[in-house]
Nucleic acid binder design. Structure first.
Lengths: 297, 297
DNA sequence: AACAACACTTAAGATTTTCTAATGTCATGA
DNA sequence: TCATGACATTAGAAAATCTTAAGTGTTGTT
């Protein structure tokens, strides 16, 4: 950590190297080309070695320069991230979360009290919303989405692996023989989302039954009413295991036939990259990850 | 990358934070404490937020400061590594390697030509040496050692996982029935190093034979003469698989009984941390890792 | 309560670093 | 040969950074 060269000269070096031209670097730094030339010379004198080859027509990084660049590049990236983390964090004591409807009501609302208690200074706001609109329009800090994690231009971090399971209320199961035939005769509360449909197809082929043998009672893309109907003993339904974890633990719902379909569609935290450096987001991510990881089911 | 705060102020901030004191930081930076105070103020103004709490007896980092520190710490570490890589690389066109005797003669010497051809500017020197003396005394760039990778004060990087196998020349095997009894009746060329001894004990217990049933013909801690004797058909020997890989491939030695003892003792590259940032070391590490990884045995 | 000790802040001016402007060098291509 | 483009060099201007010296607030001592 001692005897570092002038830090400014390193910054100039980075620009010069990235542009392969002193002149271009000078323009981007809003200084004259002479200033760049001097800073590079200064750095080279300090390190006692050349960093650019100037012998022929074009100035190019030489071997030593190429070795140095990745270190300097990373260092300045780190600094920029740090600055983003503390300086450009808007309303550091407000946390605006947008999540799909089901996650908000089944996971976040029931559990958020623990987080709120650990972070009393934070004012937490939810925007239940199934569409992932532009972060700029929405003015939210972080989104929770179900999907494959491919959100162009945004950083996404997988929260947990998920599977689709078949659940029903113990109420409805008591009234029927619990063999395959009785179960598929129960009304199906059907989620028409593509990943759930995939699971239903898999279920049918696994147990060698025809899709037409299942009789659908309710069709929607929103898990919340499906789960509520299932709780009320209205039928069986295929749902994300994470969303019903709490109901399984309490016994209000049970996993029927121990069927599970591993789906690549799962929960992701999604936001522009620099949001993840904010203090409030780091706290929220840590809390949510722990919550889902410690889930004993 | 735009609009970074003055880099000097970040450096001062780092010192102040690490010492929890402006005065201590000032001393380490060889400036007055007033200068530190001003730099910190400058940074705080630039970021438009406080980084230290000054209200009570001691100046301490506050939440924002604690969030920023790891970024700045890492950034300056990166810079220091980069500087070490290019500036303090002594004799960049000489590569001095110290390795244990067996590695030098069985692995390095036979293969080094490929490396030399890719890096004609490098003058390569070997110091076969089984003792790991201080790097300062020895004046070598890098060491290759067999062990567990615990070299206090030095960075060590595992090259490959190893196992101890039982080998013999096809010459000697032709002349005997290849059953267990015939094999253990062959003379044992015995490596008395502790990891090999462990393998021999494991071998005996695996095949339920008494240690005394093996008759030792040669005892040494150096694998080279053992392997040479084995090649000449003088007996069987337990050796590191890596060291005889070439002989196994060519058929000069064969793996007897397909016995293998997974040992935690294996090859490590060892050097002071900053050596690993030198261009010549990075090239050598890359080449050696590839060589061992691509080893088809 | 008065006072010294300590750590940090602030302001003014000195010092050092970094910049610009002007000019020089060298290679390239019309 | 001459114009052009990219970088180097220099002197002096501008800016950033430092020191000195005085000020603030807290702590501990007498």
């Amino acid at each position: 950590m001692k005897n570092l060269p002038p830090l400014k000269s390193l910054q100039v070096f980075l620009y010069a190297a990235q542009n392969n031209s002193f002149k271009a670097a000078a323009e981007k730094l809003f200084v004259t080309q002479a200033a760049v030339s001097q800073q590079i010379r200064l750095l080279e004198e300090n390190l006692k070695c050349q960093l650019f080859d100037r012998d022929s027509k074009q100035t190019r990084l030489n071997a030593k320069g190429k070795l140095l660049i990745p270190y300097i590049e990373q260092a300045f990236e780190q600094i920029a991230h740090g600055i983003n983390a503390v300086a450009f964090e808007p309303s550091a004591n407000e946390l605006r979360i947008t999540a799909i409807h089901s996650v908000t009501s089944l996971l976040l609302i029931p559990q958020i009290n623990n987080f709120q208690m650990d972070n009393p200074e934070l004012s937490i706001q939810f925007s239940p919303n199934n569409k992932l609109e532009s972060f700029k329009e929405l003015d939210v800090d972080i989104a929770i989405r179900r999907g494959l994690g491919d959100y162009p231009g945004l950083e996404s971090r997988k929260l947990i692996d998920d599977s689709i399971i078949l659940v029903a209320s113990p109420l409805i199961l008591q009234g029927c023989l619990q063999d395959m035939q009785s179960i598929i005769n129960l009304p199906l509360l059907e989620d028409t989302s593509s990943d759930i449909q995939e699971a239903i197809d898999d279920f049918c082929s696994t147990y060698k039954i025809k899709r037409s043998e299942l009789t659908s009672k309710l069709k929607t893309t929103d898990s919340v009413p499906l789960i509520q109907n299932a709780l009320a003993g209205q039928g069986i339904t295929f749902v994300s295991k994470i969303l019903v974890a709490e109901h399984l633990r309490s016994g209000n719902l049970v996993n029927v036939l121990d069927y599970a379909f591993e789906t690549p569609n799962t929960l992701y935290l999604v936001a522009p990259e620099h949001h993840f450096h904010w203090g409030k987001i780091q706290k929220f991510e840590k809390w949510l990850t722990n919550l889902l990881k410690s889930d004993p089911l």
